[in-house]
């Protein structure tokens, strides 16, 4: 019975970051990187299984989807940042086109919300991907073999070699393969934000097999995801703590939205306009949510 094992079970559990022996840079032999990525993934897996049921997993996936979308836009030679993406999805009204940044994020977000363990998931996932890629890749998903990270690497390389310009779709499929192989119910956007542009180009243009790069990216991705989880977990705990103080009608629903979505305008909350703005201001004063843009108008809020 060591103390580390105990802390994982205790009630006011904190999320343990990856131990230093996994994240410290080491000799980059194929064996080491594969071993370390496996260890990192196992730690992330334990965290995501979340026996206490308190991890704000939806919010975690939404924030990871934002990072993945920003990385994919960069791969497509676009200049939009995470801030531009938030503006595009939050400020679009019904009927407006979202533009490339908004569409990229919405694709990741949709994919991360699909349950990968219920029937028909392939069709739903296929609709998010470009049709040509989906046709080829969805059947390929069933024939992958090896460890979860190897499977992710295989589909990434396969898709990029056949569709060198479909980096986003290839990275989405890699995360799908990973989630399926580990047995997660939903995709966790991991690889996209941690593969270097030049590593992705090396696969699509030079045909590299990329195993090493994928393993290294996976260590960084697991580290990043666990850190982000610790961050949103702490912020959500704070929000939950102040929630009973909120009296406004609809504030419970508003809190639930903050607990599952990256960012929103007050107008998106289920309260009257002015009440929604007041609620956001109050939550900021209480330190439970943040204003994410630094603007004085068209503000966006999130935990």
């Amino acid at each position: 019975m060591n103390s580390a094992a105990k802390s994982i079970q205790s009630d006011n559990q904190t999320i343990d970051l990856l131990p230093r022996w996994i994240t410290l840079p080491q000799a980059e032999t194929p064996e080491t990187v594969a071993f370390l990525s496996g260890a990192a993934l196992a730690m992330l897996d334990v965290m995501l299984r979340d026996p206490g049921g308190r991890l704000p997993a939806a919010l975690l996936r939404d924030r990871l989807a934002l990072k993945a979308a920003a990385a994919c836009l960069k791969l497509e030679n676009r200049t939009e940042t995470a801030f531009d993406i938030r503006d595009a999805v939050c400020l679009a009204r019904v009927g407006d086109a979202l533009g490339p940044a908004g569409e990229m994020f919405v694709a990741w977000r949709k994919l991360a919300r699909i349950s990968l363990t219920t029937g028909g998931w392939k069709d739903r996932a296929g609709k998010v991907l470009p049709a040509a890629v989906a046709d080829v890749a969805m059947s390929r998903l069933g024939s992958l073999s090896g460890t979860p990270v190897e499977q992710a690497g295989q589909i990434l390389v396969d898709v990029l070699r056949q569709f060198p310009r479909e980096e986003a779709a290839a990275l989405m499929l890699a995360d799908v393969a990973l989630a399926r192989a580990v047995g997660w119910d939903r995709l966790v956007p991991l690889l996209a934000a941690h593969m270097e542009c030049k590593e992705v180009r090396a696969i699509s243009e030079a045909g590299d097999d990329a195993v090493q790069a994928v393993h290294q990216a996976m260590v960084a991705a697991c580290d990043g995801a666990i850190r982000l989880a610790a961050d949103v977990d702490r912020r959500v705990a704070k929000l939950r703590a102040v929630a009973p103080k909120l009296r406004a009608k609809g504030s419970d629903d508003a809190v639930e939205m903050f607990v599952s979505e990256d960012a929103m305008m007050p107008a998106a909350l289920p309260l009257a306009d002015r009440a929604a703005r007041r609620l956001c201001d109050r939550l900021v004063d209480l330190g439970a949510v943040r204003e994410l843009t630094g603007r004085s108008t068209f503000r966006l809020y999130g935990v």
């Binding site: 503006d87 908004g102 108008t297």
Partner: peptide, 10 residues
């Protein structure tokens, strides 16, 4: 038309 711009007058 895409999303409104976060500028005066949206």
């Amino acid at each position: 038309t895409g999303p409104r711009s976060p500028k005066a007058g949206a």
